[in-house]
């Protein structure tokens, strides 16, 4: 059911609410990445939330990098990178959204395998009803772009 490895491309997904301040950071980064010449062979998506049907996209990707805002209490603009491991307990499954660990588990269960998946988070400052990032989160974007670019191309550069 999976696509042959040779045909797989890296997949980058920036997600969040585009109209809620720093929650849109994934969208901003994804929009910039989509213009990157070095990422011409990378699929880049901007979406509101992770959904179960993305399992099919995961299954046909060589690796996945997710970009999201995090309300983790860290200094706004702090960037963290973590591996996403499958969560078969699926505590984060609902109807039209699902958390990253459950999505990796779903991909694994459906297609027998799931690509290596990284989550890049940016600690948020505020989520007002605005289409504008806070200064510290906006300042972090160049770093996030560089990190995601490196993670996306890791296999190809190896």
């Amino acid at each position: 059911m999976t696509t042959g490895t040779a045909l797989r491309r890296p997949l980058v997904i920036g997600y969040g609410t585009a109209m809620r301040g720093d929650d849109a950071v994934g969208w901003y980064v994804a929009d910039l990445l989509a213009l990157e010449q070095r990422l011409a062979d990378v699929d880049v998506l901007s979406i509101h939330q992770l959904t179960p049907e993305l399992a099919a996209d995961f299954a046909s990707a060589s690796r996945v990098v997710l970009i999201d805002a995090a309300a983790d209490g860290d200094e706004p603009g702090t960037v963290h990178v973590v591996d996403v491991e499958p969560d078969f307990a699926a505590a984060g499954v609902f109807s039209h959204h699902v958390d990253a660990a459950s999505l990796v588990a779903l991909t694994n269960a459906l297609y027998g395998d799931a690509p290596p998946t990284k989550m890049v988070t940016v600690s948020l400052d505020a989520v007002p009803h605005e289409e504008r990032l806070s200064p510290p989160v906006a300042a972090a974007i160049p770093d996030v772009v560089a990190i995601v670019t490196r993670l996306s191309l890791e296999d190809d550069d190896a």
């Binding site: 179960p52 078969f88 307990a89 699926a90 269960a109 459906l110």
Partner: peptide
């Protein structure tokens, strides 16, 4: 805990 789409997938 198992009654969800991931449970079905398994």
């Amino acid at each position: 805990a198992t009654r969800n789409i991931v449970g079905i997938a398994r």
